[in-house]
Amino acid sequence: MRIALFVTCVNDLVFPATGQAVVRVLERLGHTVEFPVEQSCCGQMHANSGYRAEALPLVRNFVDTFGRYDAVVAPSGSCVAMVRESYPRLAGPDPELAAAVAELAPRVHELSELLVDVLGVTDVGAAFPHRVTYHPTCHGLRMLRLGDRPLRLLRAVRGLDLVELPGAEECCGFGGTFAVKNADVSAAMLADKCAAVCDTGAAYVAAADNSCLAHIGGGLSRRGRSTPGAPRAVHYAEILASTEEEA
């Protein structure tokens, strides 16, 4: 099976460790991962802010780049949701593009979908001896319906103490440009999410999306400046990549 990694633009620039973690996990399981360098951004911010015309070339680029692979994996729930849920809508008026999107979209997976559904694994041989809580993110929860896939993967990690996050299903307040356009409301939502995370006593809060994590992590880090020991935000792929030696 030819698995291509769509690392996503934010991860490429700001969180390369997440992309590296995906590669390590899949290679450890005996798979070969390819990274087509033509890839860039899925166009989510453009499309969600109402810039369809600006998003369309990015849709085309995505389809051209990944069309030839058996499976595409991305460590980002929102980018996968963009491809699977919004691409058909954006491509709609262009029948050729719409057909290409319809053909490709079912093969684009969030990491936990690839691992659990396509490759049939829940134990990826990881070790991470820390208390962790998991924020499911809106895209993972309500658009991709990831369900307990990430939790099953995390529960199989040796040494990991998974604690439930109260109000887990509530949005963290990121919402792309919402965080800037409605900064006050976003901050109010973030404060509640950070409080819930801190209340769990976890050392790490994990999620399937680095954009939400940057938001939550930024809030926790700001809190941590006054109260040291605040939990840290980490992509769950990085937990899955950790092994005994590093632990």
């Binding site: 620039l13 390369p16 992309g19 901050a187 930024g218 809030g219």
Partner: peptide
């Protein structure tokens, strides 16, 4: 507007594609 209530992450020392 972002940093008014949360810290911002920095671009990493090396992009993913450079690492690759």
């Amino acid at each position: 507007a972002w940093t008014a209530s949360r810290d911002a992450p920095l671009p990493a020392g090396r992009t993913f594609r450079d690492w690759w």
